[in-house]
Design a protein around this nucleic acid. Structure first.
Lengths: 189, 189
DNA sequence: GTCGACATGTAAATTGTTACATGATTTA
DNA sequence: TAAATCATGTAACAATTTACATGTCGAC
């Protein structure tokens, strides 16, 4: 009966992926709205699109929630958006969310995005915990996929089978990457 | 000045990925709304979410546009959604869209979804064309990524570097899969 | 005789898309 | 000086999320 949806400024709803992508991008240096937009346009961040009609409103709402501030450099009219303490907290909370089966199956992109933004916000230990959880969930999920594949492969139409095999291969690739990443944290170069 | 956006029933706007995913799923047999929802919930299709609040409205809109029809089996109240001729055309048009650089960089998921639905709607030749275009765009994109990696790897922070390497690896995996898929079409098992 | 799965939706709020709009500054 | 890029937005609309609502049917 309690409508937690209602957006009241003192209790903002959880940020969207686009919000997190922006927060992550500006976490260590302020950027202009235009620059943010360009980065999204030219890099893989663009999957969390992209157009002025989404970026500017997102920046407005991040300001409204107190996650970023707009600072105008004296004289020049150039404005830059900087992350606030609250913004950093929100970002960190997201980065530390436990990895779940559901994330592996349907939101692997989000996990990778989280990893990309961990550099300076988490401790080495926290990063390794994240990667190991990621890794073990990937292993479990791969076992599921392989079991299904073994049982059903012959009954699947060709395209279904091939698509499924792509799913397995890309999961395996992420697992291999994960293992490599863990090594690079454990044995400091 | 011409607002092509305006949604008038005789000129429906292009379907969303969720719409295509539904059309693809029911392309060869009718399904109930509930069943569709369940498939989305339990498989990778779930990325194009998912909840009753998106599936049912999507089905309504697909009906409104004449892409699906709801058929109620006599006596039992069970209703099933079937794809129409128009729906098949729309689906096929989407499947045949040329592969573009942008798709590789930001919408690889969509390309894989398209492949998964091609089985009975395209000719062998069309499928191979799709896969070869996919393949050559992947190769070109990989070259770009590798060039950037070689030039910038040392200047990237660790997480940036690793994330980038994941991007390369998963692109390479899709390329390998593509090559395998082409073989399976060219040398009939 | 209750619990869980089947089955189908709706309403409010939010988010994102597409298209338009505007003006400054750089570069060829 | 014209075009491209920098730079920042808004408005209309479409789509999705979250939460609620309702009822049936089979199993235990």
């Amino acid at each position: 009966m309690i409508r937690t949806k209602k957006s009241n400024p003192s209790n903002p709803s959880t940020p969207t992926l686009l919000d997190y992508a922006i927060l992550g991008l500006i976490q260590d240096s302020g950027r202009s709205g235009y620059n943010i937009r360009k980065v999204f346009e030219t890099t893989a961040l663009g999957t969390y699109s992209s157009s002025p009609g989404s970026i500017y409103p997102a920046l407005t709402r991040l300001q409204r929630n107190g996650y970023v501030v707009k600072k105008t450099v004296e004289k020049s009219k150039k404005a830059r958006f900087h992350i606030t303490e609250t913004g950093l907290e929100i970002l960190k909370t997201w980065l530390l969310k436990p990895v779940e089966r559901e994330d592996i199956a349907k939101h692997r992109e989000e996990l990778l995005l989280r990893f990309a933004f961990m550099e300076s916000l988490l401790t080495g230990e926290q990063k390794i915990t994240f990667l190991k959880d990621f890794q073990s969930h990937l292993r479990a999920y791969l076992r599921e996929l392989r079991a299904y594949h073994e049982a059903e492969a012959t009954s699947l139409p060709l395209h279904g089978k091939l698509s499924f095999e792509h799913g397995i291969a890309s999961c395996q690739t992420t697992l291999n990457w994960c293992t490599k990443a863990i090594r690079s944290f454990e044995s400091p170069a």
